[in-house]
């Protein structure tokens, strides 16, 4: 499958135009279609490899969750993006599509506090379990005290 064929499939089956240049396809979808887009990318586009999943904090414009998946047989990758409304932290999980999304979403929860619905084991992965707050949010102050060590 060529990148152009993948773009055509996105428009035809999913109804979402793929932006991005060349081999890097970008699919921007609403949050309700997040899990459906993941299933589409895996089954139809053949993106079997989950590269990473992370988030961006756009302050009052809400959080943006993104996941990059790659087709290892064809020269293209798909970056899926969705924007959560301001103040919203719930997002569907992609673990049922890719097992590799498990730890990525745990890290995303750890750093941004995004509650992935349908995740089998959503708890902190890098920080201690008793940590307060989510440090990569813009609202997390620099030099937040953490007694007794800082």
């Amino acid at each position: 499958m060529t990148p152009d064929a993948a773009r055509a499939l996105c428009q035809e089956r999913l109804g979402v135009p793929a932006t991005g240049e060349g081999m890097a396809l970008v699919l921007t979808v609403p949050v309700e279609r997040w899990a459906e887009t993941g299933r589409f990318a895996k089954d139809t586009l053949g993106c079997l490899y989950m590269s990473f999943s992370t988030a961006v904090d756009w302050k009052d414009q809400g959080l943006e969750v993104l996941a990059r998946v790659e087709n290892l047989d064809a020269p293209f990758s798909v970056t899926m993006k969705t924007r959560l409304p301001a103040g919203e932290t719930r997002c569907p999980s992609l673990v049922s599509v890719w097992r590799g999304a498990d730890w990525m979403e745990r890290e995303c929860y750890d750093m941004f506090g995004i509650q992935f619905e349908g995740h089998p084991d959503l708890r902190r992965i890098l920080l201690p379990q008793d940590w307060e707050g989510h440090p990569l949010l813009k609202s997390y102050a620099v030099d937040t005290p953490h007694p007794p060590y800082r």
Binding site: P135, Y140, Y149, R150
Partner: peptide, 13 residues
């Protein structure tokens, strides 16, 4: 030093 997870000097421990 200003990272969220770093102890500001081991002499605090």
């Amino acid at each position: 030093r200003h990272g969220y997870h770093v102890v500001k000097g081991v002499d605090r421990v």
